[in-house]
């Protein structure tokens, strides 16, 4: 799916913000992966030339955290989180509808809980002042994505709860109807 074509399931101003956040997440995801490849290759070249990039590993750690936490809300937005739907799919429509509301609400609440505690962890780390040994920057700089990612994911599932309560269909996310998209061509 091209993000320029991403249509938010949300009305008005909320929709505009949603689309903007979706764009930012997508750019962070793509950039994170490209930088990771560049960093890793540069490290090889450096080592063969006799100058190891000693902070390469830490940079990759920072990038994998960025990718994971930008990605979980992006995945929530597109209904791409892995679930075992065999029993769910076998239920009648009304039960599925109620179940989906429950799932989205509980997931949203869990994400907000983790937002709170990852914020607590972040502040704790900032207070301890631990540095990354090679980059020599504060360690908390690379984990700010955790609370942010959990928070945006919580919002996505919260909105999915509301969407399922207002709409007659069953929604995996604000923009994705239930049921896996089978087309192998589909891009995300």
């Amino acid at each position: 799916m091209d993000d320029s074509e991403y249509v938010s399931g949300l009305p008005g101003f909320l929709g505009v913000i949603d689309v903007a956040i979706a764009r930012i997440e997508a750019v962070l995801l793509a950039l994170g992966v490209l930088l990771m490849a560049a960093n890793t290759v540069a490290n090889v070249v450096g080592r063969i030339a006799g100058h190891t990039i000693y902070f390469s590993e830490e940079l990759n750690q920072a990038l994998i955290i960025l990718i994971t936490f930008a990605g979980i809300s992006y995945a929530a937005r597109h209904g791409r989180h892995i679930r075992m739907s065999a029993f769910f799919d076998a239920m009648p429509f009304r039960s599925r509808k109620l179940m989906m509301i429950l799932i989205a609400a509980v997931t949203s609440a869990t994400m907000f809980l983790l937002t709170w505690y990852s914020l607590a962890y972040l502040l704790e780390q900032a207070g301890r002042g631990r540095l990354l040994p090679a980059l020599r920057i504060p360690q908390w700089w690379i984990i700010v994505w955790a609370p942010l990612g959990f928070f945006l994911t919580g919002i996505q599932y919260g909105l999915t709860t509301v969407k399922n309560m207002l709409d007659k269909d069953i929604w995996l996310s604000t923009s994705t109807l239930e049921g896996y998209d089978d087309s192998a061509e589909e891009e995300v």
Partner: peptide
């Protein structure tokens, strides 16, 4: 760009479970 993004998405979906 699209490929990098899709890689990032798959990575995130798997890695949050690893975490």
């Amino acid at each position: 760009y699209a490929t990098a993004k899709s890689t990032g998405l798959i990575t995130a979906v798997v890695f949050i479970l690893v975490g």
